[in-house]
Nucleic acid binder design. Structure first.
Length: 212
DNA sequence: TTCCAGGTTC
DNA sequence: GAACCGGGAA
C-alpha cells in the first residue's frame, strides 16, 4: 500500500520542521531568485544575489548594462541567458509599474498565463513566483518532486500540469501547505533523496517502495 | 581533472 | 534532443 500524499507531507514536516520559504526579503528578490535558480544549486544563487544586493530593485537593475548584470550573476551559471530572462521579466513587470499590488486583482490563471508568456519563464518558475511571491494556491512541481515520488512508488511520468493536478487533488487547498510542502521536498531531495540516494539513513524509508 | 545536476527554448 | 553555465563532488 502506498502512503498518501498528505501523509508524506506530515512525515516530512515532522522530520525537518517548517522551512519558512522563500528565502528572500521582498517579492522582487524572490522573483529574481526564481529565475537565477533555474538549473542551479541555491548556494550559487546566493553568491549572485549577494553581488546584486545593492541593485535588488527593478529600476536599479534596469539601469545596469548587460555586461554589468552578467558579471554580477555569473556564479549562478547560464549568466548570459539569465540576464536576458531577467530583462524580459522586467519589461513585463514594468507594465505594472513594478508594483505587485497592481497584479493582485488578476486571477491566478490569468497571472500564470502572463508569466508563461515571458520568454525564459516556464511552468516551474511561473508557479514558484505565483506561490512564493503572490501567495496563490499553486503546487510547484520540479525534478526533485518527480524523483522522490517516483521512488516512493507513484508513477509520475505525465506532463507537468497533470502531476500538479494530482498533488492539488490530494491536498487541502491551503497556501501554507503548498508553501511548506515544496520546501520540504527540496530539503529532503538534497539531504537524502539525491541522484544517488542515501536510503539506509532516509528518515521516511519505511514509506518508500525503493528500499523494499 | 573530469563528471554531474538541472529548467527553458527552439 | 541540443544548448546554455559555474561550482561542488568524485
Amino acid at each position: 500500500m502506498l502512503p498518501t500524499i498528505e501523509g508524506i507531507y506530515h512525515n516530512l514536516y515532522r522530520t525537518y520542521g517548517p522551512q519558512y520559504w522563500w528565502p528572500a526579503d521582498t517579492p522582487f528578490e524572490m522573483m529574481i531568485g526564481a529565475i537565477l535558480v533555474q538549473n542551479t544549486a541555491w548556494t550559487n544563487v546566493e553568491k549572485a544575489l549577494d553581488q546584486l544586493k545593492d541593485h535588488l530593485d527593478p529600476r536599479a537593475i534596469h539601469e545596469l548594462s548587460d555586461q554589468e548584470l552578467e558579471s554580477m550573476i555569473r556564479p549562478s551559471g547560464f549568466y548570459r541567458m539569465k540576464t536576458q530572462r531577467i530583462r524580459a521579466f522586467l519589461s513585463w513587470y514594468e507594465m505594472y509599474d513594478y508594483d505587485p499590488k497592481r497584479l493582485a486583482s488578476k486571477s491566478t490563471k490569468e497571472l500564470r498565463q502572463e508569466l508563461l508568456h515571458i520568454k525564459g519563464i516556464g511552468s516551474e518558475t511561473a508557479d514558484s513566483i505565483l506561490l512564493y511571491a503572490f501567495n496563490r494556491h499553486v503546487f510547484v512541481i520540479d525534478a526533485y518532486t518527480k524523483r522522490i515520488f517516483n521512488r516512493i512508488g507513484f508513477d509520475l511520468d505525465e506532463k507537468y500540469e497533470a502531476i500538479q493536478q494530482f498533488f492539488e487533488m490530494h491536498l487541502p487547498k491551503k497556501v501554507s501547505i503548498y508553501n511548506e510542502y515544496h520546501a520540504l521536498i527540496v530539503e529532503h531531495a538534497k539531504r537524502f533523496c539525491k541522484t544517488k540516494p542515501l536510503c539506509e539513513q532516509c528518515p521516511i524509508r519505511t514509506s518508500c517502495r525503493q528500499l523494499i
